[in-house]
């Protein structure tokens, strides 16, 4: 633990709504607490990974099997039945599907992270921002494994190596910031409104098809492209496709736009979560 003396203060004037009365958590405090509890963070990530596949025969291979099966299905549909003119389609698809899956799965676990840990939230003090963070990080391990799978398939399909592929870590990190920020907001909202998780399920399905994962933004008619282009995940995924599949630099407005949106989401997420988390122990 960081400091020896702890002050839990609230404004002394009577406040009708606790959310207006609390102290706000700053980015600095957020970081200090996460560092102080980094071992807990590690433990929770391990717990998530261990329990996810415990008792299943294929274990961690499921996390590879899932995108592989999806890849087979979509490849069947879009390169044999519908005949989209992208080759090799399997690599193209996986380039978008791997980051999208990581995003969707992280967001779902982050949204449920607080209520899934209701027992400890009610009874033990610890920095609560650890919960969505560990959910996102546990899925990031899967993300990394799947990127490995993508690399192997890229070699197998003899797609050419491009220096722009080295930009991959930048995109991964930006996406993580975006996911954590959004996941924190949804995770906190979920404590107060249990409908959030159902809403999120539907939202993610629609969002998937409005994001160029199974198709390329190039295939979209220019008029419609503007509509799709207001979607930050479209900026993210099409940048992945640019640097990995097409071997070209990402479209700068998209990359810069996604950077800005990610940072904004992160800050708003941390601050909003910090405020809302003060009543988690009594609401969850």
């Amino acid at each position: 633990m960081g400091s020896d003396s702890v002050t839990t203060a609230a404004r002394t004037e009577p406040v009708a709504d606790a959310r207006r009365g609390g102290r706000t958590i700053g980015i600095r405090q957020w970081l200090d607490e996460v560092i102080a509890y980094s071992e807990l963070l590690g433990n929770l990530v391990t717990r998530d990974l261990k329990t996810k596949y415990r008792g299943s025969f294929f274990g961690i291979f499921w996390s590879l099997l899932n995108p592989l099966l999806l890849m087979l299905v979509y490849t069947l549909v879009f390169s044999i039945i519908v005949r989209v003119n992208i080759h090799p389609y399997a690599v193209f698809l996986l380039t978008g599907l791997v980051p999208w899956n990581a995003f969707a799965m992280s967001l779902t676990s982050a949204t449920n992270s607080v209520i899934d840990n209701a027992g400890i939230v009610r009874k033990i003090y610890f920095p609560l921002q650890i919960l969505p963070l560990s959910a996102v990080l546990a899925n990031t391990v899967n993300f990394a494994i799947n990127i490995g799978l993508l690399a192997i398939l890229t070699v197998i399909f003899r797609a050419k190596f491009a220096p722009t592929m080295l930009l991959l870590p930048v995109l991964v990190i930006l996406q993580l910031l975006f996911t954590y920020g959004l996941g924190s907001m949804l995770g906190a909202a979920q404590v107060y409104f249990r409908d959030v998780q159902y809403f999120l399920g539907i939202l993610l399905t629609a969002w998937f098809f409005l994001t160029p994962v199974v198709y390329s933004l190039d295939l979209v008619p220019p008029k419609l492209r503007l509509v799709l282009a207001i979607n930050p995940m479209a900026w993210d995924i099409s940048s992945f496709q640019d640097i990995w599949f097409y071997g070209r630099l990402p479209r700068w407005p998209y990359l810069l736009g996604f950077t800005a949106v990610s940072l904004l989401t992160l800050v708003v997420g941390i601050v909003a979560y910090g405020r809302l988390s003060q009543r988690f122990a009594e609401e969850v």
Binding site: S5, T8, T12, E13, G21, R122, I124, Q278
Partner: peptide, 21 residues
């Protein structure tokens, strides 16, 4: 234990707390 936050007033603790709740 800092699990709850007061609506008004102050709670101060000097030292490391462990709660067996």
């Amino acid at each position: 234990a800092r699990i709850l936050h007061p609506n008004s007033g102050q709670v101060r603790v000097d030292g490391r707390v462990s709660a067996l709740l």
